[in-house]
Nucleic acid binder design. Structure first.
Lengths: 151, 151
DNA sequence: ACAATACTTGCACGATGGTGCAAGCGATTC
DNA sequence: GAATCGCTTGCACCATCGTGCAAGTATTGT
């Protein structure tokens, strides 16, 4: 069987097949937006669609100023925001291009997964297949491809 | 001024303009994917592109079986997975349609934000405008803690 | 030089959440 | 009916993280 070529038959196989989805499901990225205050900050910056200072952003949420600073830094570290310093003012802005690209890529990966359902060999389903190829280390023994797909 | 009609000028104004972005930046959804183990589980399910049992999923990560159960339940609660019980086996499957729709909508919201940059009134930027319309409560009474209006 | 503004960082505290172990529950098999 | 399988839930532990306060840094204004 051409296991390596097609779609992984089990999660245990899937985990050792590096793909775009692994890079896209970056916990740092999702964690950045998972916090309610940060989500609110990000929503405000998206709506404003312009660079905003920390002071401005702080006015949209009821937490301490220092907290806003940290949240903005977190979002910037995750690649969601970009910052630029002008004098003593720091302007934070949504990195819209990168953000949109990321969401589009995520949507694409999910869509491709759906499209592969009927094409890659056996039509798997509940109890239909993959019932015998289990066991830890059933696929990860070899090196596979050291595919550190460059970012 | 057509503040309510156009794009909010400040984050303080933006926070009281409910829009699609507020619903899409759902912390529950993003938190579900923000955890490394859950991200790995989700990636495996996307790659497999078929319903998988809890036992199968547990083989792709090195945590306790009970932990996998909880992670899968969390992802299902967030609308990322769907589950169906067949006998004593529970099948978890990526809700690909909903997931793709969500990412597409997020990309769309970000894109629309970019497209509105030059259209809605003044061309805002660092120090270009919005320097005088500041101050807490400039647009709405208060929306944070006392605001039990919206859910 | 001094003060004010804009922001960052150190610190402590409390809440949240991920984890493993063990017990429990429903469905299947013998 | 008893044993087994597949999964869920209760519990305790620990790490992480969000938060506010206070001090510190960098830049601008007087």
């Amino acid at each position: 069987m051409q296991l390596q070529a097609g779609r992984p038959q089990t999660p245990a196989q899937a985990v050792c097949r590096p793909g775009a989805v692994d890079r896209l499901l970056d916990p740092v990225f999702f964690r950045a937006m998972a916090e309610p205050t940060r989500a609110r900050v990000l929503a405000c910056l998206i709506k404003c669609a312009r660079p905003c200072s920390v002071t401005e952003v702080a006015e949209c949420c009821s937490v301490d100023f220092s907290v806003v600073t940290r949240h903005l830094a977190t979002l910037a570290r995750a690649g969601v925001l970009r910052s630029s310093k002008q004098g003593r003012v720091v302007w934070y802005e949504v990195d819209a291009a990168a953000l949109e690209r990321r969401f589009v890529a995520l949507a694409q990966v999910v869509r491709e997964s759906v499209e592969s359902r009927g094409s890659a060999g056996a039509a798997c389903g509940p109890g239909a297949c993959c019932s015998g190829a289990r066991g830890p280390g059933a696929c990860c023994a070899e090196e596979g491809e050291s595919g550190a797909s460059g970012s």
